[in-house]
């Protein structure tokens, strides 16, 4: 029956959305309440200004003065780290699409059912995409709750857009892990491959931002973290080009996963 793998995956994993979402929400709430007012924020920005500019740029802070604004602070304190946390979630969920079940042998039962392989991949990917999106929604709730408990004020629309901005790279990381699982038969190989690509992507962006004109800087275009850019989204809204690029890469990886998974032997 169409949609059964989607429904079953959501039914089995919705608690994960709650746990991860609450965890992320608590982080958001903490970031909101740790700096109680604008004066404290200014002191924090002055402290940051003493740090090397390259280091600040590495963390996506173009200007230390931006840290004196609630938007800049939240962008750095929450959205910068949130994506790294979500990367862990994305790899875990991406592995659950085929790699884990293949390694456990469950896939033998699944693929003996009257269902094409592509449907298993696509439906489970969509289910984890939904769960990932739900995590960002719950995290957004934590940020809003934190704002009620703090004197910091940020436009809710900006917070919402910045939260929405986390979804495309999250989907990309899930799709990347699914792709690795579809190519490699062994779970450990798939896990290592996905982790290496994500970590390498992060460091290319990190080092490239810190050292303008360097090799890492010229390689930033291949790092998906470069298209996340939470600070500019908080400042001036979503970048449609970045989002389209990330979503297109996600779609290509899912299509590649289906193609690879359709053609290879299962669990040998």
């Amino acid at each position: 029956m169409a949609g059964e793998f989607f429904k079953e995956t959501v039914r089995r994993c919705w608690r994960q959305a709650v746990y991860w979402g609450v965890g992320m929400g608590l982080l958001g709430l903490y970031i909101m309440v740790v700096i109680r007012d604008v004066d404290m924020l200014k002191q924090y920005a002055e402290l940051m200004a003493t740090m090397p500019p390259a280091l600040l740029q590495a963390f996506g802070i173009a200007d230390a003065a931006a840290m004196a604004t609630p938007e800049g602070f939240i962008s750095f304190g929450f959205y910068g780290y949130a994506l790294l946390i979500l990367a862990v979630f994305a790899v875990m969920m991406g592995m659950s699409v085929t790699a884990n079940e293949e390694d456990d042998g469950v896939l033998d039962v699944v693929l003996s059912l009257p269902v094409p392989r592509w449907r298993v991949v696509v439906e489970k990917f969509l289910a984890f995409a939904l769960i990932g999106a739900a995590i960002t929604v719950i995290a957004f709730g934590g940020l809003l709750l934190g704002m009620q408990m703090s004197e910091l004020r940020v436009e809710v629309g900006r917070l919402a857009l910045s939260t929405l901005n986390m979804v495309p790279p999250l989907l990309l990381m899930i799709a990347l892990t699914v792709f690795c699982g579809a190519i490699f038969r062994r779970r450990t190989t798939a896990l290592a491959a996905a982790a290496v690509v994500i970590v390498a992507s992060y460091f290319i962006n990190f080092l490239g931002a810190a050292a303008a004109g360097s090799l890492a800087d010229s390689l930033r275009a291949v790092s998906f973290f470069a298209y996340y850019d939470s600070e500019s989204v908080m400042r001036s809204g979503l970048n449609a080009g970045n989002i389209a690029l990330l979503l297109a890469a996600t779609a290509a990886l899912v299509a590649g996963s289906v193609w690879a998974f359709q053609r290879r032997d299962i669990g040998v």
Partner: peptide
């Protein structure tokens, strides 16, 4: 897919959720 609709399968080493 058509064949699997009409077949019942028990693997040698059965793993389930």
């Amino acid at each position: 897919v058509e064949i699997h609709r009409r077949v019942g399968f028990l693997p040698g080493e059965l793993s389930l959720w």
